Computed example of a mutant assay.
Amino acid sequence: MTFTAAEHDAMRRALALAATPGVPHGPNPRVGCVLLDATGNEVAEGFHRGAGTPHAEVDALATAGDDARGATAVVTLEPCNHTGRTGPCAEALVAAGVRRVVFAQADDNPAAQGGAATLAAAGVDVEGGLLVDEARVLNRAWTFAVEHGRPFVTWKFATTLDGRSAATDGTSRWVSSRAARLDTHRLRGECDVVLVGTGTVAVDDPQLTVRDEVDEPLPHQPLRVVMGERDLPADRRVFDDVAETEHLRSRDPRAVLEQLYARDRQHVFLEGGPTLAAAFLAADLVDEVVAYVAPMLLGAGRPAVGDLGVETIGDALHLRVTDVHVLPATGQDGAGGEDTNVRLTLTRRGRDR
């Protein structure tokens, strides 16, 4: 593969465009596009702003107009080859007279793949793989879902140093600090599903929305999903009108993920209690763990995770730490002030996520 310095620079710019703040993380991948003229200078740029809006290539072509003829299109994802809410980007590039297309990540979505072949058949010079690792990171949940046929699952929990999520009387406020709770809202906003079990809704009555620093809900909200067979009171906060909610009457994690994938959901933020967490772990359906660790000891109380069937240390479930971040105290919680929390991000050992 041979790419020019101008194409490298353009791809970095396209990746930055794709990562523009405020763009939904699903169901469509985030994509950026930069058009270069024959001398390597930028003609136009564009990015995808969410489902139903013009794709990045079409956005850039609209800005370029006639200047797109003979240009090189540098795109973070292989141009699509299907008609959905918008037309095929591969055909739009051909019609605009683009001479060359450079993309980072191939599109493995069966409904959209084949754009490179369509372009090549029309006589366009096509080359892929430029900064592909960066592109995969940009759309990690979407990429995982396409390749594995199910949503990526992030399990989040808060714990004391001795692994307790609540005291013996059931109280858990405040195991996590205000800084940790704000960080949780940020991570919720990066997912398209927040998932809990019926037990969590019945006991804790969470709202499960994404909120800002003054506790106001943000415009974009993930789908709230409650899984489990028991009936729940209609007055639970998770059933309010701030965000959409689904009650999936199943105890089977794999069946729930299949239903969510069929609804084009790609990233599940698992916030249920220890029993639900253990069910997902036992089914090998947790891809990432985010743990907020508070500097306190309880000695007894509810564990952060339920029984995993581990009877000897050799059978322990090992995780690989990928990030450690200290969330400083703000002094706004509790009678004695708030504790500093440590956020640990982990994945299963041996997995390349």
Rank of each mutant, 00 (worst) to 15 (best):
V153G: 06
G114N: 02
A96I: 03
V98T: 02
A112M: 12
L61Q: 02
L130N: 03
R150A: 09
S176D: 04
A104Q: 06
T159K: 06
R181Q: 12
R69A: 15
F144R: 04
A112Q: 15
G84R: 11
A121K: 11
S177L: 03
A179H: 07
A179V: 00
G129P: 00
L131T: 03
L77K: 12
R164N: 12
Q113H: 11
R99E: 13
Q113C: 13
F103R: 06
E127N: 13
E127P: 00
D108A: 12
E91P: 00
V101D: 02
A145K: 09
T76A: 05
R140A: 14
S177T: 01
T118H: 11
L61Y: 00
A122C: 01
V137E: 14
G84H: 06
E147S: 14
R164G: 02
S172H: 14
D169L: 08
A180G: 15
G115H: 07
A167H: 13
P79D: 10
V132Y: 00
T72A: 02
A145Q: 09
T86Y: 06
G114S: 04
E78K: 08
F103E: 03
T168E: 14
V101K: 05
N81A: 15
W142S: 01
D107F: 01
A116P: 02
P79V: 09
T118G: 02
C89R: 07
R150V: 00
D59I: 07
T159L: 10
A141T: 07
P110N: 10
A68F: 13
S165G: 15
S176P: 01
L182N: 07
A120P: 00
V126M: 10
T63Y: 04
T72S: 08
R85M: 13
D67W: 04
V74R: 08
A96R: 05
D183L: 11
D66V: 10
R140C: 10
V98G: 01
G115Y: 09
A96S: 06
A96C: 01
T72E: 06
G87H: 05
A96V: 01
D169N: 15
D67T: 12
N81I: 00
W142H: 11
P110E: 09
E147T: 13
P151R: 08
R164K: 15
C80Q: 12
P151W: 10
L61H: 03
G70K: 06
K156D: 05
L61I: 01
Q105V: 10
E147H: 14
N139H: 08
T63E: 14
R140M: 12
A71N: 07
N81P: 00
A68W: 03
V75R: 02
A96G: 00
V124I: 06
A62R: 15
G123S: 07
D67L: 15
A71T: 01
L130T: 04
G149I: 03
